[in-house]
Design a binder for these strands. Structure first.
Lengths: 221, 221
DNA sequence: ATTATTAAAGTGAGTGCTCACTCACTTACT
DNA sequence: AGTAAGTGAGTGAGCACTCACTTTAATAAT
């Protein structure tokens, strides 16, 4: 079923259950320890596979890492497209995305952490290999929707849709971090209040107001 | 002059020039390689100091890292307070902060990278030691200004100033990353256009419109 | 002035541990 | 009988940290 490019044929021939097991254990390790300090021997152990087997599946550590990124990317794409398919209007999509970020906490946490880890300069080496793919999934989507909305005079005219897409995605990314990474969780509580994470609806509402304001405001001078 | 808490007295007794040398080399190493893979022997070499001396200055690698964070924090605080002291009104401060982020590129790059690196889960261990300090510098500042502005009816009433402070700072942080980290640089270009980094004024203008919209918009229903 | 004394600062080869990766081998499948 | 898949002790490189030692500098004794 799932086919990856950065691994050996042996790995691709494994059944999905085993592939998932190995990759989820790896993602957990990489996101928690970073690329360099994640330990392949330990990963193999936790995944119930021998070290030797791991090196039959992946040429080296780097290849394992890339395969994890591939998987995360597939995960993201499917999440995004399911949202877009369901919701017709732009504001609906934005709200839905925020909702997905909030709800997908547990399930997506490791993916988000990995994504965050990857963007660190330390891993710049492969970051670029995947960056355009990840952002490609979302950037054009937002910008296209905003341009469309601007043409139909649904949102203010005095802004560049590309910048707005950028700013909105910035907010999404930080929200994702704030729901996934310990540091940013604490930071969000510091800015707002201790029980924010019990108040998903409120966060969504406030975020929507912020974004709507940014989109609809028109300066009279 | 500069006094640190996470190091030995021997280090504090060094002249500022040498302290700066050691810390800037260390910050560079930590931000580029992450905590685990930064090499103390190499750092010592690059700073023109023996390994033994390093361990006279810092009890261990962790202590060196914490001292780097302390220094970054001092840097941030002084930057922020110089902005706040100069500018009287809230919008002025926001614009000034964006300007500082853009201008301080070269000088602050290593600090930003370190900050980013630190927030990674891998370093959660010490992140928390410093998080509240870092955010404490900014969070209360913004929230207080916004509350004030709200009382004076200068901005919309239907939002929680704490959330708005949070969202605005989220935008700042992403902007900082976008000006410092390779990955986020590329991402910004992908969203906007290739020469964005030659167009500081334009970025500032667009960001201000976005934020102003968010702050001033009022919904009529 | 010169020399002795002592403490503080600095040195870098060495130690022991961690970990990516290998390879001679076993097991399972056809 | 032959091939594909899997095993895990072993290897060597990298690196945090140590320690027996040297250098520097400041003060005291002659």
């Amino acid at each position: 079923m799932m086919e990856f490019k950065s691994c050996s044929g042996v790995f691709n021939r494994l059944d999905d259950e085993k592939k998932k097991m190995i990759l989820s254990v790896s993602i957990k390790a990489f996101s928690e320890n970073g690329f360099k300090s994640a330990n392949i021997n330990t990963i193999a152990d936790n995944a119930g596979v021998s070290v030797g087997a791991m090196y039959k599946y992946f040429e080296n550590k780097r290849a394992l890492y890339l395969t994890c990124l591939e998987w995360s990317l597939m995960h993201l794409s499917s999440k995004i497209s399911s949202v877009v398919d369901e919701e017709p209007d732009f504001l609906g999509i934005i709200e839905k995305i925020i909702r997905v970020i909030q709800e997908a906490k547990a399930e997506s946490e490791p993916f988000n952490k990995l994504y965050y880890e990857m963007a660190t300069e330390s891993n710049a080496e492969f970051a670029m290999l995947i960056a355009s793919q990840i952002e490609g999934v979302t950037s054009n989507l937002y910008a296209a929707y905003l341009e469309e909305a601007q043409k139909n005079n649904l949102i203010r005219q005095d802004i560049d849709p590309r910048f707005f897409a950028f700013f909105i995605d910035n907010l999404f990314i930080m929200l994702q971090f704030s729901y996934s990474c310990e540091y940013y969780k604490d930071r969000m509580q510091l800015y707002t209040y201790d029980d924010v994470f019990l108040d998903d609806a409120r966060v969504r509402e406030q975020a929507m107001r912020f974004i709507k304001g940014a989109l609809f405001y028109s300066e009279e001078e």
